[in-house]
């Protein structure tokens, strides 16, 4: 088997609020391999969001090690983390987080702007990504002119455009109706089928059921780690 894309060992995260210490992650070990479709489930307050922030390089561990695509990101500074996010991770957020002032293709281009890619190449790659999510004809539309499901598809295109090591989806269907939910989940299935590594964070078990592997987080630890649920 090839090297893991994500390797967490002894991952701990402690928050300090005044005198109060809160252990959000209490020693998590986890390996995710290329092409895997992993769901991380757990109730709110379980440490699920903290884990997502760590995996997305939005926050750093208090102790332990996080190796992402062969790079040890546990000791990186802010600038290096920004670069790691840009190159390795494609985010899909619950609230879509599209910029209203940009067109669909402009939003998809944004990670490439921060990667310093020239405009022509950027536009081309963004169009390819938009076509991949079936929105090639909506490239000039602004987010306000698109439905929730379409907006989330634009966000997925934005996550794909950098060809990241993982697509990190944080409650991607939380703001969608059932029809759009099926639509977006179907798209993640397609991406998985095409070989993308997907990490899905959710509190809905039926959403998690689509993943090949489900990790249950409770009180900052995996419970019954690596429970595979066959599709």
């Amino acid at each position: 088997m090839s090297a893991p894309v994500i390797e967490l060992s002894g991952a701990r995260k402690t928050y300090h609020t005044g005198d109060i210490e809160f252990e959000a992650l209490r020693g998590i070990d986890c390996r995710i391999f290329p092409g895997e479709y992993v769901a991380i489930v757990g109730p709110s307050g379980s440490g699920k969001s903290t884990l997502m922030n760590i995996l997305g390089c939005l926050d750093v561990l208090t102790s332990g090690r996080y190796v992402l695509a062969g790079e040890d990101v546990s000791q990186m500074d802010e600038v290096a983390l920004a670069s790691a996010r840009n190159r390795r991770i494609g985010f899909v957020f619950q609230q879509f987080h599209l910029l209203a002032s940009l067109t669909a293709v402009g939003n998809v281009e944004l990670p490439l702007v921060y990667a310093g890619i020239p405009p022509a190449e950027r536009r081309e790659r963004a169009m390819v990504a938009l076509e991949r999510v079936g929105l090639g004809d909506k490239s000039r539309n602004h987010p306000g002119q698109l439905s929730g499901g379409q907006q989330q598809r634009v966000a997925i295109a934005r996550a794909l455009v950098t060809e990241p090591a993982i697509v990190l989806a944080d409650e991607p269907t939380g703001n969608l109706d059932s029809h759009s939910t099926r639509d977006v989940l179907g798209m993640l299935d397609d991406l998985h089928a095409e070989g993308s590594t997907i990490v899905l964070i959710t509190h809905e078990s039926d959403v998690a059921a689509r993943a090949g592997t489900v990790y249950n987080v409770t009180d900052g630890q995996f419970v019954g780690a690596g429970t595979g649920i066959a599709k």
Partner: peptide
């Protein structure tokens, strides 16, 4: 603030 957060998540360095 949200826009800034998003830009950072997508890879904007503090200097950007």
């Amino acid at each position: 603030t949200r826009e800034i957060g998003l830009r950072k998540a997508l890879g904007a360095a503090p200097a950007n």
